[in-house]
Design a protein around this nucleic acid. Structure first.
Lengths: 202, 202
DNA sequence: GGTGCTATTTTGACGCCGTCAAGATTCAAC
DNA sequence: GTTGAATCTTGACGGCGTCAAAATAGCACC
């Protein structure tokens, strides 16, 4: 398969994405430089610029891949409106596993690097919001409707995603959560969500 | 007050911290370089190295300041075990205000830059964990004890902090939350926490 | 007042980074 | 075969964190 010393690489775009994924997983965003990436692909420093506008664009493409995986994962969990607990528990575990299986990818997907620093890019924005909408669609049947308040499912989706996200961040960055606490805390989070799904009191 | 062209600055340590805080607030971590900082302080590029071991150490000191402010803020909110709702609501709002008043500082305090990349440093770790312990102490009286399960307050503190943290991150990075949703979502978060504080069912 | 120690600050240099510009090479369509 | 576009190359620029060595200032002690 290796064609050494050809002037045209022939598959550089995909190779870059693949190697970038590996480098990201192994070294994190900090270790992912275009120069090192080019070297790994056996190509000169500036060759990547003919396939990605700049580093930000490459990172966006990488994050996009991640969101597509996450979206697929969300479709696989069975949720039963009549008995939400087991499904929700599975979903929470799956989300945490997704994040901790490739922490650097998760960090890239949701980190400030893309969303604050370099601008997100339309493709990334689209698939990321699609992911949330997918979550909302799946969560909605589990939510007991308040009296005519259409925004309740949305607020619940936002708040519960925030809980999951916060859990992942604290865990991955090693701040207030340790790996061995994770199971207990995630169960606690499921209880939080379940309590909130029941009819709004008051 | 300005003493121009003196060889010894005289107050460089504090000046650096102060200017770093300003630069951080205005430009974010990305815009905070030691070289620019030195220039602002009217001093050569390597002068800061005699007051901070490296960039990581300076950022740690900066984050430490933030945690001390956060710790002080937590002490100011009144919480009534007999009627937790209003106090909790105030606390949640205060936390979100803390984060959104100086987003870059919050990002630095809880971001991967310090906790993952550069090692946190003992002082930062101490004050950060102290902050969480403070939260736990204040939350504990509000938690109805389950049957002999001593870890329930801890789990609740972890899960609820994760919710707050997730809310802040999503908001500050502009991912799934917009500023105008904030009030509604944070109210939803308070409801989440209140529901969880009641006696554990089952 | 002079002397030496230490803290502080300086200039110089190194290697890394992202990225632009200009030229070389290959490929594909005519 | 020629031409034009796509792809890849080398060279260069400015910015970064940081180390080393030299210069300067403050200070305790004689």
């Amino acid at each position: 398969m290796p064609r050494p010393a050809r002037y045209h690489h022939g598959d550089l775009h995909d190779t870059l994405l693949r190697e970038a994924g590996i480098l990201l997983r192994e070294q994190g965003v900090e270790g992912l430089s275009l120069r090192r990436l080019a070297e790994r692909a056996g190509v000169s420093r500036t060759a990547p610029y003919h396939h990605f506008a700049d580093k930000n664009a490459l990172l966006c493409a990488l994050a996009e891949q991640g969101f597509r995986r996450l979206d697929a994962m969300m479709g696989e969990v069975a949720l039963d409106p009549a008995d939400p607990e087991p499904g929700l528990r599975r979903f929470v575990r799956a989300y945490l596993r997704f994040a901790s299986d490739d922490p650097e990818q998760y960090e890239l997907m949701f980190g400030r690097t893309l969303w604050k620093g370099g601008h997100p890019g339309a493709g990334l924005k689209g698939v990321a919001y699609g992911c949330f909408r997918h979550y909302l669609v799946r969560l909605r049947p589990l939510v007991s409707r308040g009296e005519g308040d259409d925004t309740r499912p949305l607020r619940l989706a936002q708040a519960s995603w925030a809980t999951l996200h916060g859990l992942c961040r604290l865990l991955l960055d090693g701040i207030y959560l340790r790996r061995e606490d994770m199971e207990a805390v995630s169960d606690q989070a499921v209880d939080l969500m379940l309590a909130a799904l029941r009819p709004a009191r008051r």
